[in-house]
């Protein structure tokens, strides 16, 4: 077991884990942050996406020990300070960007990473950003619309 200290959504956290524990399991089980979803556990679905030091990555393909000393943002971090939905979450609801919601945290993390770069992404840029995230429900069109909407709202707000 090793003690892992990291920053999650701006807050310093620590817990111990065996080296074989994925960051995904660590977030959900040791830190009680269960917004990040577990889909395939081998890198193909994107449900487990988190931001590591500013870049979106799959948390099932990172051992928690590797995140020691690093900064993570999870879907919990996309809420407003008062706990209500942030602009990306709200846009997903508004534009019907989800049905069962399984893929949604990963989609929102991918959207967040994209909208940090540009608030008016092209459709190609949106497709590229969520290309590694599978959704079995929506057919993707409403997700693309939700991301476009969130971008517009962010631009209007700035």
């Amino acid at each position: 077991m090793s003690m892992i200290k990291l920053t999650v959504n701006g807050v310093a956290r620590s817990a111990s884990a065996e080296p074989r524990m994925s960051l995904l399991d660590f977030l959900r089980e040791n830190l009680g942050l269960n917004a990040t979803h577990m889909g395939c556990e081998h890198g193909v679905c994107g449900a487990c996406s988190v931001i590591l030091d500013g870049a979106p990555v799959r948390s099932c393909l990172l051992f928690a020990v590797q995140a020691d000393g690093h900064a993570i943002t999870t879907a919990e971090g996309l809420r407003k300070d008062d706990g209500t939905p942030g602009v990306i979450m709200d846009s997903f609801m508004e534009a019907h960007g989800l049905q069962c919601g399984y893929c949604t945290p990963g989609m929102m993390i991918a959207a967040h990473a994209l909208l940090e770069q540009t608030t008016s992404p092209s459709d190609d840029e949106i497709h590229e950003a969520i290309g590694g995230n599978l959704c079995r429900c929506t057919g993707y069109a409403q997700i693309v619309e939700a991301i476009r909407l969130a971008g517009r709202r962010m631009k209007d707000a700035s």
Partner: peptide, 9 residues
Amino acid sequence: VGHTQTRNR
């Protein structure tokens, strides 16, 4: 090669 998220690692 892969996707944004796999290329980031």
